[in-house]
Design a protein around this nucleic acid. Structure first.
Length: 215
DNA sequence: GACCGGATTGGC
DNA sequence: CCAATCCGGTCC
């Protein structure tokens, strides 16, 4: 694996202005940062972000904000940057985003995979995973990531520079460490299908998708 | 008020 | 390859 997550300093936060850069820029810089969830029982689960996708707002045919019209589901993306946008897909999986982008641009970064770091035993309980499931599989994929960290509509709109569900700055990887590819499963996005807006830590086992999209 | 289909996953 | 499972979005 290219990586080696380390124990994150849970007191650190990004400045709010960090999230006001273009969503693709924010996405790339978030590779190596930590996503942390603390539940009401005091359980902490966390992982290093190793894969994400940028969704670029009203012009992006793959984005939920395509067209630029807020709806009850997407209104969080029209709100403050650095907050969470979470939605249910296929009736059973939650997918979480960080709202990003210039002020007035409803953009977001979809978090697709983490390298597990804290609370792996709790992740296993939440996933109902067999105890022999390899560590690197616990947060591999956007749906699993949310299940492992216990995320659902309760975190809709929460400030991710706060203390409940938040992001901690981590390692700064170089351009060479970070790969890019088209985004996953947006066949309907026409001329936006092939844009290289998916980012991942190269050769990291926790990245989802076929092998060629992990190298 | 009805109907369509998805930024997924795991099991066959 | 395909079912599971729900609700937002859209259009009537």
């Amino acid at each position: 694996m290219s990586s080696k997550a380390v124990y994150p300093d849970l007191t650190q936060r990004f400045d709010k202005s960090f999230f006001e850069h273009d969503t693709a820029t924010v996405a790339k810089k978030l590779i190596g940062s930590y996503l942390v969830s603390s539940d009401s029982a005091g359980n902490i689960t966390a992982g290093m972000i190793v894969e994400n996708e940028a969704y670029c707002g009203p012009d992006d045919k793959g984005a939920h904000t395509f067209g630029g019209k807020p709806t009850p589901r997407t209104k969080a993306m029209f709100g403050p940057k650095g907050h969470a946008y979470i939605y249910l897909i296929y009736g059973m999986y939650w997918c979480v985003n960080v709202v990003a982008g210039p002020v007035d641009k409803p953009q977001a970064v979809l978090l697709r995979a983490l390298e597990p770091v804290l609370g792996l035993d709790i992740m296993r309980e939440r996933l109902s995973a067999q105890e022999n499931a390899a560590d690197y599989t616990l947060c591999r994929g956007p749906g699993k990531l949310c299940k492992a960290l216990g995320l659902d509509k309760e975190v809709y709109g929460v400030d991710m520079t706060g203390d409940r569900f938040f992001i901690v700055p981590g390692k700064n990887f170089t351009e060479d460490d970070i790969g890019s590819s088209p985004r996953i499963n947006i066949d309907y996005a026409e001329d936006w299908i092939d844009r290289p807006l998916r980012f991942y830590l190269r050769n990291n086992k926790s990245v989802s998708g076929p092998a060629r999209l992990r190298r």
